[in-house]
Amino acid sequence: MASEQTTQEYILHHLTNATMCMTDDGLQTNYGKGLEEASAACQEAGFWVWNIDTLAWSILLGVLFLWLFRRVAKTATTGVPGKTQAFVEMVVEFVNDNVRDSFHGKNNLIAPLGLTIFVWVFLMNLMDLVPVDLLPWAAGQIGAAATGVDPHHVYMKVVPTTDLNLPLALGLGVFVLILFYSIKVKGFAGFAKELTMQPFNHWSMIPVNFILESVTLLARPFSLALRLFGNLYAGELIFILIATLGLWQLPLHFPWAVFHILVIVLQAFIFMMLTIVYLSLAHEDH
């Protein structure tokens, strides 16, 4: 009982998350609902809507990352490493080198934080290279077979970084760390001074300084989040648009995917690098 989709519906279907929320009528999802119905399903829940596909995929990938690295860490030998260990150590060393180059304080959090961000974001970005229809289609088929709903009414976005919630959560997490370490290293007064006495060191310029510095500070988590989200969302959207071209998608998918390999690694790297740099700035006492 699959319905035919127009191009617009196809695109909208691919851009809709699987959502879940508690309403007065009990637990609601957009599972098995048409597009309009689906977007209305959790309207009244407001903020308290959960994108279960984003959560599931991101946690799955995060656990995959930690499981792999933990397994290697447990059996890590100081002698000749096996292939998996060599690979894991290569990643660890890459992150460690970057941290050592940019961060000069002593902090046991920065390097593991960088590693987590780099590998986790990379894995989530990597989902973008899975053929754009494959997993949503499989989910649709399973949904249709199991509960008899229209496969086009099963929603699933497989790239968690194309859901603004995730990059923003990462950005805010980093932002909290920036504030925490700024205050911890410079003291509250030092941090306040940094916000108000720069770049013009005169009492009459305090409001101007404060506005400038606050914007700089507040822009950090959002620039982090939006850079990652924008790149991946745009990439995903282009995959979807290419997929609507019928036969023409065949020669186009490949070059875009190749180009995208660069984007997904680069975005993961940039996110990690900027996190390290921001935290390094937070540790610097003027």
Binding site: L109, L113, L170
Partner: peptide, 26 residues
């Protein structure tokens, strides 16, 4: 939406786990 909170918690847990059990032995 609330996903933000869920992701933030997941992020914190992952970083904590990585810092505690993955990074030092490696």
């Amino acid at each position: 939406n609330a996903t933000l909170i869920g992701q933030l918690i997941a992020f914190i847990v992952f970083v904590w786990f990585c810092m505690k059990y993955v990074w030092p032995p490696l």
